[in-house]
Computed example of a mutant assay.
Amino acid sequence: MRRSLFPFVLGISLVLTACHSQKEEKEEAVVYRITSPMVKDTVVTSEYVAQIQSSKNIEVRAQEKGFLQKIYVDEGQSVHAGQVLFRIMPEVYQADVMKANAEVEQAKIDYQNASTLAKNDIVAKNEKAMAKAKLDGAKADLRAAQLHLSFTTIKAPFSGVINRIPLKTGSLVNEGDLLTSLSDNTGVYAYFNLSETEYLNYQTQAAERSNKQVGLVLANGQPFSEKGVIQNIEGEFNSETGSIALRAKFPNPNQLLRNGQTGKIQMEIPLKSATIVPQKSTFEIQDQKYVFVIGKDGKVTSRVIKVAYVLPDIYILESGLLPNEKFLVEGFQKVKEDDKVKTRFESPEQVLKSLKLKAD
């Protein structure tokens, strides 16, 4: 019985050994594709959230107290410079003007009398000077009264569109109360922020930019018909956000854009010697992106990379890889740290052309 089992056990052992050898040969046969970063000059189009403001936007406030006697405009109405918008009941201020005018006339008479008496040496010349000073004071009071009266008629300082009117006819208005706001929408400003890296790229590549034009994508995803021009950059970075604000001006001939809208600025940024890798060749752990770098000894080592720009199917790196370093194109799910692997090098151009670049 024992003799009959020995050939069977021996057969099983031979079969298992053969299977194990075949498995090892199969694993050894795996060859991983590797490449290096593509380094080239390129231009990226980046989008930045923008806040849109009218080129002129002011609050129209009362400069005098009184009842709101008349509202001459409606919300959303276009007005021209100098057009009357509101009138505050003027009677009290008209009376002040009449009183001040009478005081001027009285002061004129006093001055004429003092001049005559001083000429005949009946009174001292100081009396004439005092009368002149009184006349000048009365004229100043008259001018102030006329100015207060003029404040009861509120006019548009420039052409634009009337916004919300919170008060109604007959409301009691105090000095400084908001009557409405006025927006000139013939041109608008778009404010947006750049990070420090993006700002440096933008400024240092100034010679590569043919112009300062930018595009605008509206909230509905449609591009705005007009191109804008970057006019200025603020003088300092925001210490909390680490960004700096830029202002672009857009013509707005059809008055489509209004104060307070939002959109996205589209700006082309030239990059010198940009480092480009396929998205599919990267993996992510705890919000950090990695690639598997192949060392000279053939071992794989994970490396953190910092992405500067995300484009369809590719990343443009800020740091993490040198131009001559090699990394796994794919299959990093099958390897682990310090594994020694067989590789086949493919040029970056070939990889970017042939791979179906789609991030896992």
Rank of each mutant, 00 (worst) to 15 (best):
Q213M: 12
V293G: 05
I269T: 09
E236V: 12
T301R: 14
Q279G: 11
N254L: 14
N193M: 09
K212M: 10
L216Y: 01
S225I: 13
A248Y: 06
T301W: 04
S239W: 09
F224I: 03
L216D: 03
G215F: 04
G235Y: 11
N220Y: 06
L246P: 04
K249V: 11
Q205G: 14
Q203V: 12
E198Q: 15
S225N: 07
N254A: 13
I294S: 10
I244D: 04
L194S: 07
S225E: 14
P251V: 01
P251I: 03
T197N: 09
F292N: 04
G260N: 15
E226F: 08
L256W: 04
V217I: 15
I276L: 11
E236T: 14
Q279A: 13
G263L: 05
N220L: 04
G298C: 04
P278R: 11
G260D: 11
A248L: 07
P278G: 11
E198N: 12
Q266D: 03
L256F: 12
Y199D: 12
L271D: 07
N259S: 12
Q288P: 00
N201G: 03
K280F: 10
T241Q: 08
E268V: 06
F192C: 01
K264I: 01
L271R: 06
G228N: 11
K299S: 11
N201V: 01
A245R: 15
E234T: 12
S302N: 14
A207W: 10
S273G: 07
F250S: 03
N259C: 10
P251N: 13
E284A: 12
G215K: 08
G228L: 00
N252S: 02
L256G: 04
N259P: 09
G242T: 05
T275H: 12
I294E: 01
Q288G: 00
E196G: 02
R303E: 12
L256M: 08
Y290L: 02
Q205I: 00
T197Y: 09
M267W: 04
T241V: 02
P278C: 10
F292A: 05
K280D: 10
E284V: 13
S302D: 13
Q222C: 00
A248P: 08
S281K: 01
K289P: 00
L271Y: 04
K272I: 08
Q231L: 13
I244L: 05
I265C: 02
K212Q: 10
L256N: 05
E284G: 06
G215V: 00
G235Q: 11
S273Y: 07
N259L: 07
N232D: 14
F292C: 03
P253E: 11
G228H: 10
Y199K: 07
V277T: 07
Y290T: 03
I276W: 09
N193T: 07
